[in-house]
Computed example of a mutant assay.
Amino acid sequence: MARNATAQKTIYALRREIARIEGVLPERLAAPGEEDPVLRRGVSAMRGAAAGAFLETGAAGLDNALAGGVPRGALTEIHAPAARDAGAAAGFALALSSLLRKEGRRPEKRRAVCWIGTADLVREAGFPYAPGLKRVFGLPAHDLLFCAAGKLADALWIAEEASRLDDFAAVVLEIRGNPARLDLTATRRLNRRAQERGRPVFLVRAASFAEPTAAPVRFHVSSAPAVPRSTLSGALEDSIGHPAFTVAIGKSPTSLPGEFVLEWNPDVLAFYEIRPAYSRALVPAPAHRPHLPAAGGTVVALRRADAAPAPGDQPSREERPAHPGPRRAG
């Protein structure tokens, strides 16, 4: 019995250490005679965690797939499949940051946002447009600290130092491609800094492919068609509504995949899940119905094989075979 108790205590200690390194969100399992809980993965574990551990996006489907929302104290990857989707990925990260700032009802409690980008990305995409940030995300210019780092090493250092400060609601690090320096060790350091302060770090990666990182959650974000503006008399045709994003879950602690179309309402600073106009409800195929016939082609008159050829259809002497019967030797 003593040996089993020792082995069980060792297993609990290993689980605790693995959970600390990976930064998974908890289901509380107390080891025998211990007060410190053990963290474990799982959907039930995520749903049983404290409500303050997640940032709810407001889209029920996405929040349910993540078992509560986006983790606060963790590194979250936001991938843009192509370079043209870099703006959508950055906008999604700013929308999540706006949700964090919205929780501070009074202006003095609304903390700033630190946005870090590399110099090559800034030269291609440009600097943030202050009036647009204020109008769309409710982020005034004096609450945004934008840093254009000359090298990736400098950008990573700034992100680590900014994540330690309590003056920021979130840290957004925007990087292009798949640089070798942004490896598992670098992302583990960023994830650890986010865990220590309970503040998210959003890693926006433009024109990159997914690779192993320490981020517990990864999104693939691209732009979606905007829904026409609605009026009292119905939808206003040929109009452009609020920004929309196609968000696919590439990685999460619950391991539940999903793809959602979210609309960002800048008036109330909230997400809403919408259904694309081209989507339709699926109807099951009938079980006793034959398949549809294939499309018909050109009708051609064919002669029966047993019918005698017409006089005019006889082949000429030149067209007849030279040896219609078996050849004789000798």
Rank of each mutant, 00 (worst) to 15 (best):
A2S: 04
A7M: 10
E17F: 09
G23S: 01
G23L: 03
V24H: 08
R28M: 06
E34H: 08
M46D: 02
L55T: 11
T57S: 11
A60S: 12
G61W: 07
L62N: 03
L66D: 03
P71S: 02
L75A: 09
E77F: 02
A93G: 08
R111M: 13
I116S: 13
D120F: 03
V122G: 13
V122H: 13
R123N: 08
A125S: 13
P128A: 12
A130K: 05
L133Q: 10
D143G: 12
K151H: 10
L152D: 13
A153W: 15
A155C: 13
D167N: 15
E174H: 10
D183C: 15
L184P: 09
T187C: 02
E196T: 10
R197K: 01
F202M: 12
R205L: 10
A206L: 02
A214S: 02
A215N: 06
P225N: 00
V227L: 00
A235H: 00
E237N: 10
D238F: 07
H242M: 04
P243Y: 00
T246Q: 08
L256M: 03
L256D: 04
V261D: 00
W264K: 09
V268A: 13
A270G: 01
I274A: 03
P276A: 01
A281W: 05
P286Y: 03
R289Q: 09
A294T: 11
T298Y: 00
V299G: 07
R303K: 13
D313Y: 01
P315T: 04
G325T: 11
